[in-house]
């Protein structure tokens, strides 16, 4: 094992330029993969933040008593998936409208005396997936006239999430395939460059495993070092970029760079790098052995 690693290291150093180019390609491919991961992580974070603001509104029957309102609020709080319940009186509702339409305040003139707005409760759910069940539970509470929620918005959010996930998966797969081919080609070139040595190995009784192990480890090392370099670059770039975004766009939710995110990047890229390197070598070696 030690011998195979030593030989792999020797191979990397001996074919300096070829190794460097493979490393560079792996670095670029894995950087793209890492960047895709970070963008997706941030989009998810953004959705999560947006989702938390999605309301279900339950309009109450006009003329409900204060006691009934208390009962409705208590019943709403009991519904699974409900995070927060707020009562909005007809007067508060009108104030909200005035804030929204402050440039057209005259439209709302005279409504104070004959307020048409029903009392309502605003419900915040723990997540998008809870909205439908929360809405139907709210409908069953006595005193609730109607329930509305932004079904379309929710569906759109889900659709965007799915599309992004698919694009991410497709991107990662295509980048992964390119990396496998590049490393595979690099190993193939190494094998060709060392065919004289391989012939001598066979002559002195080296097994296929002994001959191929250094090439396999060489692929693993290329993948690993590419992953290490890409992780370092991404973590550095993300540190700088997230700091900059917080300053210029303070309301934009950005995943903070903490040790967990850094570990995630290192783990994802490290495992992918090793897998890509190993797979690339294995494919070339299988061809060579055949």
């Amino acid at each position: 094992m030690f011998y195979a690693f030593a030989e792999a290291w020797r191979g990397l150093r001996r074919n300096g330029l070829s190794s460097f180019l493979s490393l560079l390609t792996t670095f670029i491919a894995l950087s793209l993969l890492g960047a895709t991961f970070l963008v997706e992580a941030n989009l998810r974070y953004m959705f999560k933040t947006v989702e938390q603001g999605v309301d279900v509104q339950a309009f109450l029957k006009k003329g409900v008593s204060a006691m009934e309102i208390d009962q409705i609020l208590a019943a709403a709080k009991e519904i699974p998936g409900v995070r927060e319940v707020t009562y909005v009186s007809p007067e508060d509702g009108l104030k909200e409208l005035r804030e929204i339409f402050q440039d057209m305040a005259s439209v709302l003139d005279g409504l104070e005396t004959n307020n048409p707005l029903p009392p309502k409760i605003e419900v915040k759910t723990t997540g998008v997936e809870e909205i439908v069940s929360v809405a139907s539970s709210l409908r069953e509470i006595p005193g609730v006239e109607d329930v509305i929620y932004q079904k379309e918005a929710q569906e759109k959010l889900e659709a965007i999430g799915r599309a992004l996930q698919m694009a991410g998966v497709a991107g990662v797969i295509s980048i992964g395939v390119v990396s496998v081919l590049v490393i595979g080609n690099s190993i193939r070139l190494t094998i060709i460059a060392r065919r004289h040595e391989v012939a001598i190995m066979k002559l002195v009784g080296a097994t296929d495993g002994f001959i191929t192990a250094p090439f396999f480890f060489e692929g693993l090392l290329l993948g690993f070092f590419g992953a290490l370099a890409a992780s370092g670059m991404l973590i550095g770039a993300y540190y700088w970029l997230s700091g900059w975004l917080v300053v210029i766009l303070p309301y934009l939710p950005v995943v903070p760079l903490d040790s967990r995110l850094a570990t995630d990047i290192l783990t994802i890229l490290g495992i992918t790098g090793l897998a890509v390197g190993g797979l690339g070598s294995a494919l070339s070696l299988r061809k060579y052995l055949a």
Partner: peptide
């Protein structure tokens, strides 16, 4: 490979590993 380990072969063109020393070439076998 296991059969070849019982046999030694010498060629006209020596077939030595150019980037290894005399000692390493012999140790290689």
């Amino acid at each position: 490979p296991f059969f070849r380990r019982r046999i030694g072969v010498v060629f006209q063109d020596f077939k030595l590993l150019e980037d290894r020393t005399v000692y390493e070439n012999v140790a290689f076998a």
